[in-house]
Design a protein around this nucleic acid. Structure first.
Lengths: 211, 211
DNA sequence: GGATGTGAATGTCTTCACAGCT
DNA sequence: AGCTGTGAAGACATTCACATCC
């Protein structure tokens, strides 16, 4: 329960995966699921599944497994998906657009409340119900609109400066899509999704295929 | 050299990061760099940097550090970025489009050679110099065009089936952007970029902020 | 019987600290 | 003196294996 132990990143990722399987299972009408089943779907071991879940409590019944509906809801709670988060996207290029419009995003409770850009040509553009705002208004808007998550979808050169603005605006969680490392104060959480990095990892694997 | 030791994923990611810093440094004209400098830029420790590099050889000079140009080229070699890889993208939606057109992609040696889609409405569409092909031609084209990397940019439901087709076409490296786990034979490398997962990790951090 | 929850053992990655080269 | 390269120690994550409960 909101324990003080630091939870490993890999654990959180797996919990997310388990949740997505559980949501599929719910559709099929399955009422119960074993750690072994979840492990198979997620490419881990049953022991791993049980360890992951045991960090947060005892959700299963020995001899039976886990109740699909109950575990789903527990995981949603743990991952903070019961509530809806207010997201502001900075950078109204292709990526920003894709994010703001991606439907699976809103479904999971990530509500894109605003989009900002610095380029005059983009400011004022309408996307569905959103109008691209002037990036300079970010700090002012933030206090009233209380954004939870800031998304950086600008070119590398501008990324750190945007991060600084987001932090100054009181945002404590940043998702960074620019392929650079971002520096933030310790009370701000950052994740960087760096596609170049991912492709280079594939390249490495191919180049060293000879093992 | 091309040793048989398994290299940790986290190490490969950091090598990628170091490389991108080195490329920046080259611009500034710096001729030498210390592990401590690289560590600062990449958010690790100097010991970590040295360990990472030492897996592949001794590239530095004691008392001096690393030669920027030399290390850059070594890392390119290790990551397989000296050669250019032939990429085929399956799924001509927003994401596929963004990838095919992203300039930094070609710069790094990832050459998008073909784009496929199953929807008749999209087949034949032209993007720059690329024409969207019929997904059913994938297997046939592959033998002649020798794709190195396949990119899955289709909805979840279709992802596994596309993966199977890529594998059947003789492709050994797959980058998956669908938010599902993909199953492939052991001689095929996969990486999944799952944005939902990343956002849920942020959500988790926010929800457990109370530490 | 069947499957969970969990200490103990194992394995993997990171950090320390220092010898050794320039 | 300065900074690398690396064995040893430490921290962390995963797997084993079994007592425990349905």
């Amino acid at each position: 329960m909101s324990s003080s132990k630091r939870v490993a990143d890999s654990t959180v990722r797996r919990l997310s995966l388990y949740l997505s399987f559980l949501e599929e299972l719910e559709q099929t009408g399955a009422s119960t699921v074993s750690s072994d089943m979840l492990a198979r779907l997620g490419g881990t071991t049953s022991a791993q599944v049980r360890k992951d879940l045991s960090i947060f409590g005892s959700f299963g019944k020995r001899g039976l497994g886990y109740d699909v509906e109950e575990l789903t809801s527990k995981l949603r709670g743990i991952l903070g998906l019961e509530q809806s988060w207010r997201v502001c996207v900075v950078g109204a290029g292709k990526l920003g657009l894709a994010l703001a419009q991606y439907p699976g995003f809103a479904e999971k409770g990530f509500h894109v409340a605003a989009v900002y850009d610095a380029a005059p040509a983009r400011i004022g553009t309408k996307w569905d119900s959103l109008t691209v705002r002037d990036a300079r208004d970010l700090a002012g808007d933030a206090s009233a609109e209380h954004f939870d998550i800031g998304v950086i979808a600008v070119p590398s050169e501008a990324a750190q400066s945007v991060a600084d603005q987001l932090v100054a605006a009181g945002i404590h969680a940043i998702m960074n899509f620019a392929p650079v490392q971002i520096i933030v104060p310790p009370d701000v959480v950052t994740r960087t999704v760096n596609m170049a990095l991912e492709f280079e990892a594939l390249s490495f694997a191919l180049a060293n295929w000879s093992r």
